[in-house]
Design a protein around this nucleic acid. Structure first.
Lengths: 187, 187
DNA sequence: AGAAAAACTTAACAAATGATAAAAAACGAA
DNA sequence: TTCGTTTTTTATCATTTGTTAAGTTTTTCT
């Protein structure tokens, strides 16, 4: 998915603003297993996935939560770095070799402050992420792990082939062993 | 909390834009138990709480999830109406007699399209809600209901006095009976 | 104040999930 | 391919949370 499609997906931008915007991006590649965002750092860049898949997760004590998976067109971002310029709670690792579009938060802030079309793009971007976050929250509060797993299968059927069971389980908020048991029961 | 404080809390706006912005608000009052946002409607307005407390919840089948409580300075909003102009999944009821500031989404869209300062205010607003949503999600995935209850007590000590146990339980994702048992165990 | 309604607690049993361990299957590198 | 590693399954037992029901306390209304 190229950068034009990625930006347009969020919000249309007029041609001259879009040109200015796209000039700030750089294409980069990283290998599988690369830890691209670290929770102990204020991250200076955000990324969009051209090709590949990533996992956002958070560590506390000895346990780990998978917050999200990102596929082509999705964003790799430390929210607390991007929004508050603070150390985040997210780590993001690449689950495959990835091709990414990179832009610095400094460039973004500058574009937001000077171009109303891009400012509204930034607003739409946050709003769409917010909708996703709330839907995710509601579906995790409702129903059993079995229901959530079946819903995930329906919504992201390809994900199960690309990602290990343990990570899916951590995304669903259960242990890998529980998920294996659930799979045995629904077939 | 007045409308100046509420708007500034999110993002500073220059004086003339702020004046234009505030002119679009209207003060309204509603009694306790009023259902101000309904999930079966596209809502045309959003509200900020001057005085009082509200609860956002979602119904599916026969169960109900409390998504959030809103106190003074917080927003009463159907995200899907505001962002996508679609019917939402949220109901919002007032838990006390409330004084509110009201603005139409149409006015907001108009302000966003024409004033870069207000567009960036809208961006910051969505971003801050996003941070809250993600923190909430992470803390609900981690640890036991007991830990989440203790965390809530620390973060919002006044809430427990203003809101019934059943609603707190539904916020924590457990039943009222379970929460009562938890309270009996931690004292 | 007194009656009715709502909120909260307690208890017993059921269901879902966690923890641990061991075995089987799938995957990857030499 | 083959050996070693990782992933997945299966099983057992412990813990947490849900369900139902009954009883107590608190709040609300007249």
């Amino acid at each position: 998915m190229n950068i034009y499609q990625i930006l347009d997906k969020t919000h249309p931008i007029n041609a001259s603003s879009k040109h200015k915007f796209i000039e700030c991006f750089e294409e980069v590649s990283f290998p599988k297993n690369h830890l691209i965002i670290r929770s102990d750092k204020v991250e200076k860049d955000i990324f969009f996935i051209k090709k590949g898949i990533a996992r956002t997760f958070s560590n506390f004590d000895d346990s780990e939560v998978t917050i999200a998976f990102g596929e082509e067109g999705d964003t790799i971002i430390s929210l607390k770095s991007y929004i508050l310029n603070q150390k985040g709670y997210e780590n993001i690792e690449l689950l495959e070799d990835c091709e990414l579009y990179k832009i610095s938060t400094a460039s973004l802030q500058n574009l937001f402050a000077t171009d109303i079309d891009i400012a509204n793009w930034g607003r739409k971007f946050a709003e769409q992420e917010l909708i996703k976050a709330e839907q995710r929250f509601i579906s995790n509060q409702l129903g059993t792990a079995t229901e959530r797993y079946i819903e995930l299968l329906k919504k992201h059927p390809t994900l199960i082939q690309r990602v290990s069971l343990g990570l899916i389980a951590s995304y669903l908020g259960i242990t890998q062993v529980s998920l294996s048991r659930i799979r045995a029961n629904i077939t």
